Simulated assay, not measured.
Amino acid sequence: MGEISIKINIADRVYPLRVDIEEEEVIRHAAKLINEKIKELQDNYAVRDKQDLLSMCVLQYATGMIKAERNAQQHEEGLEERIHELDNVLTEFFKK
């Protein structure tokens, strides 16, 4: 569609961005989740440095993303295997 200018606050810093209109909600939600995770880490650990909190936050999100990608890949491989099995069954059925 079109681009808009927005300001996103992450860890008490404002970042001006130009984003597609349809991405605005996702970006704002992501910033909210990041700030909530930073607050949670700050409350649970004796870390006050924003850079350390951001690094810990990124590590947690990256770990979650890698796990989700691996899980999706495993499901995809399992689905591919089932499709081959079904193809073999159908091929045998139609040969008769």
Rank of each mutant, 00 (worst) to 15 (best):
V47A: 05
D43C: 04
K96L: 08
C57E: 10
D49E: 15
D43K: 14
A11T: 09
V89N: 02
V58I: 15
R70W: 03
L54K: 14
R28C: 11
R82Q: 12
K96F: 13
L90I: 14
E92W: 05
H29T: 02
I8N: 01
T63Y: 10
N9Y: 08
V47S: 05
G64R: 06
V47R: 03
E40D: 12
Y15E: 07
D87C: 01
M1L: 10
T91I: 08
Q51K: 15
V47H: 04
E81C: 07
Q51M: 13
F93V: 09
K95S: 11
Q42F: 13
E36M: 06
H75R: 15
D52G: 02
H84A: 11
D49Q: 11
S5A: 04
G2T: 14
E81N: 12
A31Y: 04
V19I: 10
E69K: 07
I8C: 02
K39Q: 11
G64D: 08
K67W: 03
D43A: 13
P16Y: 00
E22T: 00
E76T: 12
I34Y: 05
K37W: 06
M65L: 12
E81P: 02
I6Y: 00
K50Y: 14
Y15R: 11
I66A: 08
A46V: 09
S5Y: 01
E76A: 13
A30I: 15
K50L: 10
I38T: 02
D49I: 10
V58P: 03
D49T: 03
S5M: 03
Y15W: 15
Y61R: 06
I27G: 01
E80P: 02
R82S: 08
V47P: 04
H29Q: 10
V89C: 04
G64T: 04
I38R: 01
Q73V: 05
I38E: 03
D49R: 10
T63R: 08
I4M: 02
A72G: 03
L17N: 00
A62Q: 05
E85M: 08
D87T: 00
E85H: 11
A11E: 13
T91F: 11
Y15D: 06
R28Q: 12
G78Q: 15
V89Q: 03
M56N: 06
N44W: 05
E81I: 06
I8W: 00
E22P: 01
L79C: 08
K39A: 13
E80W: 09
H75T: 07
R82G: 02
G2I: 07
Y61V: 05
F93Q: 07
Y45N: 13
E80G: 10
E36L: 04
C57L: 08
R28S: 06
E80A: 14
K7E: 02
I66L: 06
A30D: 14
K7W: 01
V14G: 06
M1D: 06
E92G: 07
Q74T: 09
E69T: 04
A72I: 07
L86V: 01
I21D: 00
D87P: 00
D49G: 08
F94I: 12
Y15A: 06
E80D: 12
E76F: 15
H29V: 01
L17S: 00
E92C: 04
R82I: 03
S5C: 06
A11H: 11
P16K: 00
Q73N: 09
K50Q: 14
I10G: 12
